[in-house]
Nucleic acid binder design. Structure first.
Lengths: 297, 297
DNA sequence: CCTTATCCTTGCATTTTTGCAAAATGATCC
DNA sequence: GGATCATTTTGCAAAAATGCAAGGATAAGG
């Protein structure tokens, strides 16, 4: 068995397609496919569901993923010790992110990273639009949908959940909606409909809501509106621990899930960016897991 | 960087030579050398001291070894989950070992293994001679010197230490020797000189001792002689916790170190034997470390 | 319902890696 | 002190892996 096939496996699992993994591995998709086929043969199990939509992990693949990531961490530490990569990072890194992520996740994650790398300047770019990496607006970008360009490397960061919520005061006065259709007449808080910059953010249409009497381009403003008793809003589960006034509404009927993607240039490899990417990925995953557990559904 | 080079690194580190690693990796020594060279290039550090005596780890190599072993463990778990290797082992495994190892290490180690694999029959062959694997006397053999045959796979298990010791009673009566030359006239316990089956066991010659008034082919008998106040004996540090009557003599002047090697056939690969080998290696290493710490010099 | 776009797969020329055999290198034994 | 031994290293042919380009399959959009 060839250990290197696991490196290929890992990159493919994260990129969720051969074509997307190409940039990370700097290998032809055909080669990646053949190596995964060999790995599956060796393992005696199917690791991916292959389709024209990409490669998705099977259950067996998910089990392997956990261990492959441990191995990666160990190997990273090992080589880190040798190449002197234990050295502290420095210089500016600018990260673009949607404001939910920028407000409720990145501060803690970046603080911890900055703590261990005092010479690193972390700049968080929170804009109500998609950050344009090609124009060098940032070094790394977090987005809610996967960029299509071939010149960008996109890897899956983490899934996260959203819930419909309102302040307990508001619910006491107006009563909680009993079913999804009730939402049509309810006082909804959301994005300004004609300024939604990514289809993935159009939660309310998905719930059948047409009118949005209170709106903002910023999810944190929306959250403040909800805390102040302005109505019902779709908010990130990971933001809920910061808003104790809020209570979930129709938690079973509203089960929204989205994915954060981490993107950077496909240009020449940059060891410093590699390391920051790694730290960011681990940090955000852990923070989402922590906060979602706190906000336990 | 190629993860598979780390698999090669690991095997070579354990075998301590390209030629010996050949059997484990089923690769030509030339290939192994080239892959290690590539790994060193990637790591930017020299990992082995190469000589006609074999490959020995440098300090950098030792640091990497730790992490590579962690990675190996993670990968092993990962593939174990898939290939259903989590299943319990069964059938007989016969292990040949010198009696010091057979008496003071293997019982605990084997008990723990048997605990987790109730259908496994572990047979410990303790003989006052080198176990002959070629004649199928055992499936695995532990030895104090490295077998030379090409048809055997030998890997380094662990170093261990030996000390000169005598019972406190005996020391009170006869007095402790003050220096190495004193040993010539002292009452020594050791192997029967013309029945020493491995040059590595000839500790007493190394100390300049010529006459052995109390002798046995068995180190555990020698230890009992020493406990009973029969004189001075060279005993394994890992046996000392079991013999509280004994006290070290000239601990600074007598610093003997030996190595256990684990050997098996170079024939076709056997997954079951692979797994037992792994368990045994980890178990013995841990047990030696534990006992030597207990007997703290 | 057809078109389009996006992805995975297959066939073939090229590059890389590997294995074998021979040469070189040091330590050890007599 | 010189031959001998087991080891690593180098040169070259064979095998394997890789990249490229064309073919094929599936979902979304007009």
């Amino acid at each position: 068995m060839n250990w290197d096939d696991l490196r290929v496996f890992l990159a493919t699992a994260r990129a969720e397609s051969l074509t997307a993994a190409r940039g990370f591995l700097r290998m032809d998709p055909a080669t990646i496919a053949r190596r995964i086929a060999r790995l599956e043969e060796d393992a005696g199990a199917s690791l991916f569901l292959k389709s024209p939509q990409g490669y998705r992990l099977t259950e067996a693949g998910q089990r392997l993923l956990t261990h492959a990531e441990e191995a990666e961490a160990a190997l990273g530490r090992g080589l880190g010790v040798l190449t002197g990569a234990g050295e502290s990072l420095s210089g500016p890194i600018r990260i673009g992110a949607p404001d939910g992520c920028a407000t409720y996740l990145l501060p803690q994650v970046c603080a911890r990273i900055a703590d261990q790398h005092p010479d690193l300047d972390l700049q968080i770019l929170a804009l109500p639009r998609i950050v344009n990496l090609s124009r060098r607006e940032a070094d790394l970008a977090i987005s809610v949908s996967r960029p299509q360009t071939d010149r960008l490397l996109a890897e899956k960061l983490s899934d996260y959940r959203l819930s419909l919520a309102a302040s307990r005061d508001w619910l006491a006065i107006h009563g909680a909606p009993r079913s999804l259709p009730d939402l049509k007449g309810a006082r909804m808080i959301g994005y300004i409909p004609d300024m939604i910059f990514d289809a993935e953010l159009d939660y309310l249409s998905e719930l059948g809501v047409t009118r949005v009497p209170m709106a903002s381009t910023s999810i944190s403003v929306q959250l403040q509106m909800a805390r102040a008793g302005g109505g019902l809003a779709v908010v990130h589960d990971f933001a809920l621990p910061a808003a104790p006034e809020l209570a979930r509404v129709l938690p079973d009927a509203v089960a929204l899930t989205r994915t954060f993607w981490l993107t950077r240039h496909a240009g020449q490899r940059d060891a410093r960016l590699d390391r920051v990417t790694h730290l960011l990925r681990d940090g955000i995953r852990a923070e989402i897991a922590r906060l979602e557990a706190l906000s336990c559904r």
